[in-house]
Lab assay of single mutants.
Amino acid sequence: HHHHHGSGALAALHAEGPLAGLPVTRSDARVLIFNEWEERKKSDPWLRLDMSDKAIFRRYPHLR
């Protein structure tokens, strides 16, 4: 159930192989992290948004 927010940013994801479903670039990863943060913020208003490279690598090590 993907609803768009204002920016309408869509992340490019790997379609197949071992990385299927994972973001292709760091900016794609940022979109995913932001979208998930927006969702989680509803139940956790104090949740901090962390889109640093460090956060991205921790989450998606293949982007190193």
Rank of each mutant, 00 (worst) to 15 (best):
42 K>T: 07
6 G>M: 11
52 S>R: 06
24 V>R: 09
64 R>Y: 14
47 L>Y: 15
2 H>V: 13
60 Y>M: 01
37 W>N: 01
47 L>T: 15
23 P>A: 01
12 A>E: 13
31 V>T: 08
50 D>M: 02
19 L>Y: 14
49 L>T: 03
1 H>I: 13
59 R>F: 06
10 L>M: 12
38 E>Y: 13
2 H>Q: 11
35 N>A: 14
19 L>T: 04
36 E>D: 08
38 E>R: 15
4 H>T: 11
11 A>L: 06
30 R>F: 06
34 F>E: 04
10 L>Y: 07
21 G>S: 04
52 S>C: 04
38 E>P: 01
32 L>R: 02
40 R>I: 07
19 L>K: 05
54 K>L: 15
1 H>M: 08
18 P>Y: 07
32 L>F: 05
3 H>K: 10
55 A>C: 05
1 H>F: 11
63 L>G: 00
41 K>W: 06
62 H>I: 00
16 E>P: 05
46 W>Y: 14
18 P>V: 09
61 P>K: 04
6 G>R: 04
28 D>P: 01
11 A>S: 06
59 R>W: 03
48 R>L: 14
42 K>W: 06
16 E>M: 08
43 S>D: 11
8 G>Y: 09
33 I>D: 01
11 A>G: 06
53 D>S: 07
36 E>Y: 04
8 G>V: 06
54 K>F: 10
43 S>Y: 15
40 R>V: 03
55 A>Q: 09
9 A>Y: 15
50 D>A: 03
45 P>F: 04
30 R>N: 07
62 H>Q: 01
13 L>C: 09
9 A>H: 13
28 D>H: 04
42 K>A: 07
7 S>G: 14
34 F>M: 13
11 A>D: 03
46 W>L: 14
28 D>F: 04
64 R>T: 11
1 H>E: 11
34 F>K: 07
11 A>M: 07
8 G>C: 09
43 S>L: 12
28 D>N: 02
54 K>H: 09
28 D>K: 01
62 H>G: 06
4 H>G: 10
46 W>V: 09
52 S>I: 01
14 H>L: 03
38 E>C: 10
57 F>G: 08
24 V>E: 04
32 L>M: 05
30 R>S: 03
21 G>K: 02
64 R>K: 13
9 A>S: 15
46 W>K: 14
40 R>K: 08
49 L>C: 08
51 M>C: 08
49 L>P: 05
17 G>E: 03
59 R>S: 07
6 G>W: 14
2 H>P: 13
63 L>Q: 00
23 P>D: 00
45 P>Q: 10
24 V>F: 04
39 E>C: 07
35 N>Q: 15
44 D>K: 12
59 R>Q: 06
12 A>N: 15
19 L>F: 13
9 A>N: 14
5 H>S: 08
5 H>E: 10
29 A>S: 01
51 M>Q: 07
46 W>C: 08
2 H>E: 10
49 L>I: 06
25 T>L: 04
49 L>A: 02
38 E>Q: 11
17 G>P: 06
36 E>W: 07
25 T>F: 05
48 R>T: 12
34 F>A: 07
58 R>A: 10
40 R>F: 10
1 H>L: 15
58 R>N: 15
10 L>S: 15
15 A>W: 11
2 H>I: 13
25 T>R: 07
35 N>P: 00
18 P>K: 04
56 I>Y: 01
53 D>F: 15
29 A>P: 00
48 R>M: 10
18 P>I: 08
23 P>E: 00
56 I>N: 01
7 S>V: 11
39 E>P: 02
41 K>M: 09
50 D>V: 05
13 L>W: 03
21 G>C: 07
20 A>Q: 14
30 R>V: 07
7 S>Y: 14
10 L>D: 10
46 W>T: 15
31 V>R: 15
59 R>L: 11
7 S>E: 09
31 V>N: 07
22 L>M: 11
15 A>R: 12
61 P>Y: 02
22 L>N: 04
40 R>E: 10
7 S>K: 10
36 E>I: 06
27 S>A: 08
8 G>N: 13
35 N>R: 15
31 V>L: 14
44 D>R: 06
38 E>I: 10
63 L>T: 01
17 G>L: 02
62 H>V: 00
17 G>V: 02
30 R>H: 05
27 S>M: 14
16 E>N: 11
23 P>K: 00
47 L>S: 11
38 E>F: 14
16 E>D: 11
35 N>I: 13
47 L>M: 11
8 G>S: 13
33 I>V: 07
9 A>Q: 13
36 E>S: 06
58 R>W: 11
31 V>K: 09
2 H>A: 06
29 A>Q: 00
50 D>W: 04
20 A>G: 06
7 S>F: 14
40 R>C: 07
53 D>Y: 09
50 D>F: 03
37 W>T: 01
42 K>L: 10
19 L>A: 05
18 P>F: 03
22 L>K: 07
4 H>A: 14
41 K>P: 01
20 A>L: 12
52 S>K: 06
43 S>Q: 14
33 I>E: 01
50 D>H: 04
18 P>R: 06
52 S>Y: 01
30 R>L: 08
61 P>W: 03
62 H>F: 03
61 P>M: 02
24 V>D: 01
56 I>P: 00
58 R>E: 15
21 G>M: 03
54 K>T: 14
55 A>P: 01
